[in-house]
Every structure is written in C-alpha cells, then in structure tokens.
Design a binder for these strands. Structure first.
Length: 230
DNA sequence: GTAGGGTTAATC
DNA sequence: GATTAACCCTAC
C-alpha cells in the first residue's frame, strides 16, 4: 500500500533520525491523517501520539530534540513542556498528547486502536475512493484517556462558564487540544456519573480529593443533564 | 452548537 | 461478564 503523505522531515529531525510514521497504515481513514501516529527516535525510544489531522512542524522537532538532551520523567514532563512552550515554541497538540504516551513509562503495551463502525453513507458518498478498510471499521479519531490535568482544566472552565457552553469552554481552555466541544460535554457527563451520583462501582482515573470536591459542588450548582422544557 | 441515547474498547 | 470511559450519531 502506498505510504500516506504524512511524513515530515526537517534538517533537525533528520539529524536525530526522527520521523513520523503511520501506526496503522491499512486503517488510515479517508482524510489521510487519522488515528495513531508513532514518533520514533533514533535511540530506540518512541512516543505514540494520537491526534487528528495534525502535521508535525519544526517546533515539534526542536521540542523533541530538547527532550532528548534532557530526558524527563513522566511526572515532570508536562511542566517542562509548558515551560518550553511558554519560552517560545508554538502550542501544538504535541503538548497535550506527548506526556501521556511516553511509551517508555507505560506499564503495559500499546493500547489497541479504537474503532468505530463505518456508516453506510461512507460507501455511498466515497464510492470512488478505494476502501482501505478490512472489515467495515475505520479508526476512531482519538484514543486518548483524559488526564487529571485536563479534568482540572475542564473543571475550571465549568466554574467560569457553567454547563452547556462547551464551544466557549473549548476556545478558552482547550484551544490547541484535540478535545472537541462534544468531548468536553461527554467528559463532564462522565464526571457527573462518577462523582456526583456516586453510583459507580469503580473509577478508573483517581483525582485529587479537592478536585473531586470541586466537581461535586459544581455538579450541585449546575445540574446536568439540564432540565429541559417540554 | 448542544443534549442525550447508542456503540465500542478498555478495564475490573 | 459487567462496568466504565471515550467516542459516535442525530434531533432539535
């Protein structure tokens, strides 16, 4: 199969044997760049990234090269990225995704690519495009689990804007993130189920108690789902 | 653009 | 197998 045109190689990247590579070539979506990417480094380490329609830029390479010079633990990588970006590098989805997918630090192996069923309209509208799908599935856009930091940001946003102004929240708090307004809404719903109603048997992402308390209070202040007028 | 039901993969 | 979290679908 022909390599999708997503590679990018600046002199800096070449120097570091750094390149972008599609993880699931056979499952690349119609948009070209869809699903998982793996950023491989010459020294054998790799960073799996999950982002949508994103092309690597020079600044990304610079960021990675700096990281190679001064390796970071996962714990303080995020802060380091914030500082580096504040110091002149552009904000990019890299900032939001890199720290969560540092493969070296992962306890288990790479998570599988999430899939969704294709709608029948795909084949109707895109009949002329040769299908690259094995079994009626294409990859999902993201596969990223929310981090405590993202949740904190979401909580801040809800504190400011209340519930239901997800686009506004996206613009102000998740401008460069892969999270969409719908993702924010869905996450808030999950948080309400997990913490406000307190009916879940287990919770996958443990949050700091003060943050949980804030979520509960916001849940009480802004009922969700909202009461709809009939 | 949002709400809320539905689907899927990850996790327990 | 059941539950959770992320994501999808679509009426409004």
């Amino acid at each position: 199969m022909e390599q999708p045109e997503i590679s990018f190689c600046s002199p800096e990247m070449e120097q570091a044997s750094l390149f972008w590579m599609p993880m699931q070539q056979a499952e690349q979506g119609l948009d070209g760049i869809l699903g998982d990417l793996e950023l491989s480094l010459g020294n054998g380490t790799a960073y799996g990234l999950q982002m949508e329609n994103y092309r690597a830029r020079d600044d990304d390479a610079v960021l990675i090269l700096k990281l190679l010079e001064e390796p970071r633990d996962e714990a303080d990588l995020d802060e380091w990225l914030s500082v580096s970006i504040a110091g002149g590098l552009h904000p990019s989805p890299l900032r939001d995704t890199l720290c969560h997918y540092q493969m070296e630090c992962r306890k288990s192996g790479r998570r599988g690519v999430r899939k969704r069923r294709t709608s029948p309209w795909d084949t109707l509208f895109f009949r002329e495009i040769p299908p690259q799908r094995g079994d009626g599935y294409i990859t999902r856009r993201n596969n990223s689990r929310w981090t405590a930091k993202e949740v904190k940001l979401l909580v801040q946003g809800v504190s400011k804007f209340g519930v239901g102004r997800w686009s506004q929240l996206k613009k102000n708090y998740f401008k460069t993130s892969v999270r969409t307004a719908v993702n924010l809404k869905d996450k808030w719903r999950n948080l309400m189920r997990a913490y406000k109603d307190n009916v879940q048997k287990y919770i996958l992402l443990e949050l700091d108690p003060p943050l949980v308390e804030q979520i509960r209070k916001l849940g009480a202040k802004h009922p969700y789902p909202k009461q709809r007028h009939s």
